[in-house]
Amino acid sequence: MSHGGDSGEVASPNLTPLLDMVLQLVMFFILSANFVMQDLNDTIKLPEAIAAVPLDSSVTDLLFLNVNAEGFLLPTDGDREPIKTPPAIRNYLTRRYQTAENARGKEGATKVAVVIRASEDATFDKIFMIMQSCRQVGFTRLQLRALKK
């Protein structure tokens, strides 16, 4: 009686499809991973809005202004200390506007869209002061960022 075990053949599973599938999963996670975005501060809890729309693809030059619950501006370049006083905020914005002006010219700098990412607990006076400062230094376009409901 033969059981076929005498031939010495080794049964090995075909691992190639398994490898294919795992690599596809790896690709998915790589592509959807959150890479650290320098301009965005994830400690800020944004308010929610139904009417919030994705950013217009024609707008390429953006200046993100992260504002915490106390109304302090959290800079995204250089030192990361919160900017607290109105004159200091104005100085920061002036510096950012001049950087944009040097890179893109005067007309290009006015096309930079300021995106305010403010905490839902911030108060109107702080946000309004930042908006006015933006206008004072020369910015003309403004967007308020919110979580899409």
């Binding site: 790896v26 996670f29 790589i30 959807s32 991973a33 959150n34 944004l46 809005a49 009417a51 919030a52 729309v53 994705p54 950013l55 217009d56 300021v114 995106v115 990412r117 309004f128 908006m131 006015q132 400062s133 933006c134 206008r135 004072q136 910015f139 003309t140 376009r141 403004l142 967007q143 308020l144 960022r145 919110a146 979580l147 899409k148």
Partner: peptide, 22 residues
């Protein structure tokens, strides 16, 4: 990647006019 996966909530914009400076 599975352990570090954290889907980011979608952010959107509300366009408004800038107030006058003064």
């Amino acid at each position: 990647f599975v352990f570090t996966f954290k889907p980011q909530p979608t952010e959107g914009q509300l366009g408004i006019r800038l107030p006058n400076a003064d």
